[in-house]
Structure formats: C-alpha cells, structure tokens
Amino acid sequence: MTKDMALRVVPRPMRKQVEEGLRDAIMTGRFAPGQHLPDRLLCELFGASRSVVREAVRLLEAEGLVTTYPNRGPFVSFLSPAEAEQVYEVRGVLEALAGEGFAQRASAGERAELRRVLEALAALPPRGADQAALLALKREFYEVLMRGCRNPLVARMFETIINRNAQLRATSLSDPGRLSGTVAELRRVVEAIEARDAAGAWQACRDHVRSAAEVALRILREHERAARATG
C-alpha cells in the first residue's frame, strides 16, 4: 500500500449516513415511539433524496425500529410491555455471555478501558444528567465489552438486540433514580471482570439487565394504563 492510499479517506454513501443518523435519532429518543416519519421531514433533516430516505427506512424496519403502515407511512416502532420483556430476556443472556467471555479473554488494556468508561458514568450527576452523554457512555461500555469478549457471534447478535433495546434503555434511564443503580450494577460487572471471576461477571450482567427491565417495564405499563384511561 502506498502512502497516498493509506491516507485516502473513503466517503460513506449518503444512504449509510441517513441510516445511521435516523437510527441514532430513534435510539436517543429524538424520535419517540409512535412518531410519524414522513419522507419530507427526513429529506429535510438529512439533506437526502426521497429514494435514499426510503431505503434507510426499509433497513431500520428490518431491525424492528420502524413500522410501516399501509396508506399511513413509517412510524417509530412502539414496543408493548410483552415485547419489551422478550427483548430483555434475550439481551440478558447475550450480555451475560459477553461478561463471562470478557472476564476470561479480555486484555489488560480492555479491562482498563472498561473501568474508564464506568468511572465516566459514575462522574455524571445522579439526577439531571445529559441524556445524550449518558446514552453515549452506555454504548461505549457495550462496545468495549463486546470487543473484549472475543465472541464475534455474540457481538453480532447483541448489536441487533441492543438496537431494538435502545428505546427501552432510554425509557429505563429516564427514571430519576436509575443512573445510580446502573452505576452500582455495572461496578459489580467490572469488579468481577477485574477479579477474572467469569461466573460473577455472568451473574452481575444478568442482574443488571433484570434491574433495567423492571424499571422500563414499570414505566411502559404505566404508559399503557394511562393510554387506556384516555382512549
């Protein structure tokens, strides 16, 4: 490879930029569950053509983040409490496998990186933390965990389920007291990993997901009851 080739920057296709931008907007809660995603809005937001926007929407529909209704168009998918419970069940097993693998196979540098992200989370104010910064740190924590577990299959499956879980994570973290619980639970994960306690890391990961599920499902059920009462 020549020096010029090594320095060359390959631009991302517009469709990929729109796909990633729309996914991020849904995952961070900028587009709320049930919100309509008309072509015109997305074209203006991303500066892309209608064909590019529609292709990106189709890809996110395959991930379950978008639902398209005949004669109505695409909407941000809304997870029912029953669907959310299923997502958390799958996530719990995958996250536990990753925690176990990380404890067994991660490098010293990866362990230090996981600790660094944990302490950055712990440094956020327990109430009123910037939601985008909080969600970015959670994503970074899982990126390190999946890389260090040395199981590409688990990492690929987790990427799919965590996209579906993104709205739920934003829901659970919207609870005023949830951040402190999240930090305490992830601290248990990191401490088990640092002790190379694979079984402890597995259990700590399962406990973390169960706690997040309890909060998110409570909020979703409250919303469901409120919607029925006003429907």
Rank of each mutant, 00 (worst) to 15 (best):
V53D: 05
A106E: 06
R50T: 14
F78H: 03
A122L: 09
Q17D: 06
F141M: 13
E44D: 12
P152L: 08
E119W: 03
T67H: 01
S51W: 10
M146T: 09
A48Y: 10
A103T: 09
A133S: 13
A226M: 03
S49C: 02
L168H: 06
Q35K: 04
R169M: 13
R187A: 02
N163I: 10
P74V: 09
K16D: 15
P81I: 04
T182Q: 06
R210L: 10
R169L: 12
A192S: 14
M14L: 09
D207Q: 13
A201Q: 06
L168C: 03
K16S: 13
H223D: 10
T230A: 13
A120S: 07
H208M: 09
R50Q: 15
G21F: 03
V87H: 00
A129H: 01
S211K: 09
A6R: 13
G101S: 08
F141R: 13
R72D: 07
A108V: 14
R12V: 12
A122G: 15
M146K: 05
D24T: 14
L168R: 10
Q131K: 07
L97C: 09
A25T: 00
H36F: 11
A216C: 04
L179R: 05
L41Q: 12
Q35V: 07
N165I: 02
V9L: 12
L220S: 03
A136H: 06
V154C: 06
R15D: 12
L97K: 13
R156A: 15
A123M: 02
M146V: 02
R30G: 02
V18S: 10
E19D: 08
T28H: 08
A199W: 12
A227F: 07
E63N: 00
R8D: 11
A108S: 12
G231R: 11
S80T: 14
G73E: 11
V66H: 00
P125L: 10
I161H: 01
R54M: 06
L145N: 01
V52M: 08
A136L: 02
R188V: 02
K3E: 15
L7P: 00
R210F: 09
S80P: 00
G231D: 10
E61Y: 02
A123H: 08
L65M: 11
R115F: 02
E61T: 10
L97V: 07
T2L: 12
R8F: 15
R225V: 01
E159R: 13
R225Y: 02
L220H: 07
A155N: 09
S174H: 05
M146H: 07
V189H: 08
V209W: 03
G47Q: 00
P152I: 08
R111S: 13
Q203L: 15
P74Q: 11
C205G: 04
R15E: 15
S211V: 02
N151A: 12
S77M: 00
E224H: 05
R221E: 11
G128T: 08
A227K: 05
A184L: 06
V9A: 06
D175A: 08
L121F: 09
L124W: 01
L97F: 08
L217C: 01
L135N: 07
T67G: 05
E95C: 04
G47F: 08
A184Y: 07
E185H: 11
E185N: 12
Y69K: 12
L118N: 03
L22H: 01
R187H: 06
A103I: 09
W202D: 11
V18K: 01
R111V: 15
S107V: 00
Q131D: 02
E89Y: 07
T230W: 09
R111H: 13
G73C: 01
R116D: 14
V154R: 02
